[in-house]
């Protein structure tokens, strides 16, 4: 059993015991172990590492740095103002028991195309802190997902934290699934209207080999908001439909047990349009996060 109490210790053990599997909430790894799909030689338990289960503001308050050990429950309780879409996504994950243990870092390391934090992290242009005894590097979220369940993490690296720019305008996350709780997304979508830059961020989940960004949709919306960021009422209705269509086009879904490719495209167009109308409403009401 490897049970470091410091981050430095965790990195040393990670490099000394390449056969050990890191574990945090265990909500992905223990399922694989219980079903015999994973048989790591031992576990590298990160739940006793000091100072990784909380968050802090960096960059003069512009960025929220979320520690690898922070549970979804705490993200919901503590960050729904600074990171509204991430908190919204966290609310849809599993059940109270799962949210009490599961972490964004574990979600990232698993790198499932259906991971619910991923669309939000894309929409917010998050960065992943990956660290090993060789040093710390920041991975842009756009470079993080390299294939189904494959990430840019090196074998000796651990995720130390995730850096999420604090919201400057409305954010939305929406997910489609067969039930209100305990569902792996059939599709999901996140939207971020960054009024400070200003720019539009998006993220699509469960509709491709990796989580995806809907670039053309971002560009189109940015162009039509242009100099109207403070008067979104003048954005015409067509924009919503076009936006939804471009979101659906950005996806490359497959048919599987959770839904057909055709259904996924359709649902994404609906989610895109819906998230946009909610976000524009918030923008109109001047509802900007603190």
């Amino acid at each position: 059993m490897l049970r470091p109490s410091s981050w430095r210790g965790a990195m040393l053990l990670r490099s000394q015991y390449p056969d050990a599997s890191p574990i945090c909430g265990g909500t992905d790894l223990m399922v694989d172990i219980n079903f015999g799909r994973a048989r790591p030689a031992t576990l590298l338990d990160l739940t006793s590492v000091e100072d990784i289960d909380s968050w802090e503001l960096i960059d003069d308050g512009r960025t929220v740095r979320i520690g690898a050990g922070m549970s979804y429950t705490r993200i919901i309780d503590e960050l729904s103002g600074l990171c509204p879409a991430l908190a919204q996504a966290a609310r849809t994950i599993g059940s109270p028991q799962i949210r009490n243990r599961g972490t964004v870092a574990g979600n990232l390391a698993t790198a499932s195309p259906a991971g619910d934090s991923h669309p939000v992290l894309l929409a917010c242009w998050a960065q992943v802190e990956a660290e090993s005894v060789r040093g710390l590097r920041l991975i842009d979220i756009d470079d993080f997902f390299v294939g189904p369940k494959r990430s840019a993490l090196e074998p000796d690296e651990l995720i130390r934290a995730v850096r999420v720019p604090a919201a400057t305008g409305p954010q939305q996350f929406a997910k489609v699934g067969p039930r209100n709780a305990m569902v792996i997304a059939t599709v999901s979508f996140a939207l971020n209207l960054d009024t400070a830059t200003p720019r539009v961020g998006t993220g699509i989940g469960s509709a491709g080999p990796t989580p995806l960004r809907a670039r053309a949709a971002e560009q189109m919306l940015q162009d039509s908001l242009d100099d109207r960021w403070d008067a979104p009422g003048s954005v015409d209705e067509d924009v919503g439909r076009q936006f939804g269509a471009l979101v659906a086009e950005a996806a490359s879904p497959i048919d599987d047990v959770r839904g057909s490719a055709e259904y996924r495209r359709h649902a994404l167009a609906v989610l895109g349009r819906r998230c946009l109308s909610w976000a524009l409403q918030d923008l109109g009401e001047g509802e900007v996060a603190a």
Binding site: G26, N34, F35, S95, I98, N100, R101, M182
Partner: peptide, 23 residues
Amino acid sequence: EQGECGSCSVYVDGVLVCSCLVA
């Protein structure tokens, strides 16, 4: 044994968890 049913729920340090998912 996969976190879906909750029949293994216990508290660890006062936090509700599925004991099948805790090592």
